[in-house]
Amino acid sequence: MIRKAFKLKVNPGQFEEYKKRHGHVFPELIEAIKAAGASNYSIFLDEDTGCLFGYVELESIDKWNGVSKTDACQKWWRYMEDIMETNPDRSPKSVELTEMFYLA
Rank of each mutant, 00 (worst) to 15 (best):
K63G: 00
A104Q: 13
F6S: 08
C51W: 15
L8N: 00
P27W: 11
R90A: 02
E57V: 07
E17I: 01
G66L: 02
L103G: 10
M80S: 10
W64Q: 06
R90K: 12
F26R: 13
V56M: 08
Y79T: 08
K4W: 13
L97Y: 12
G23Q: 09
Y18F: 14
S42K: 14
C73S: 13
A35F: 08
R90M: 03
D46T: 00
R90G: 01
V56Y: 10
G50L: 01
D82L: 05
A72M: 14
P27A: 12
E81D: 11
Y102K: 08
A104N: 15
R21I: 08
K7V: 08
A32R: 03
V10T: 00
M100K: 10
A35Q: 13
L52K: 04
K20G: 01
F15D: 07
H24E: 13
P88I: 06
G23E: 05
K75T: 12
W64N: 07
N40K: 11
D62Y: 07
P92E: 06
E57K: 09
V10S: 01
F15W: 12
R3A: 10
F44C: 09
E16K: 10
F6V: 08
K75V: 09
R78W: 02
Q74F: 11
F101A: 06
Y102L: 09
R78S: 07
R21Y: 11
M84Q: 05
M1D: 12
P92V: 09
G23I: 04
K19V: 11
F15R: 02
E31A: 14
F6I: 01
H24R: 12
G50I: 00
R3W: 11
N87P: 02
I61F: 14
C73F: 14
G54K: 01
I30F: 11
Y55D: 02
N87A: 05
S68L: 15
L29G: 03
A104Y: 11
P88H: 09
M80F: 07
G37Q: 06
L29E: 12
I30D: 13
P27K: 12
D82W: 12
E17Q: 04
G37C: 01
I33G: 01
W77F: 13
E81V: 07
E85F: 10
V95Q: 15
F101P: 00
Y102C: 01
F44P: 01
T49P: 04
G37A: 05
F6Y: 11
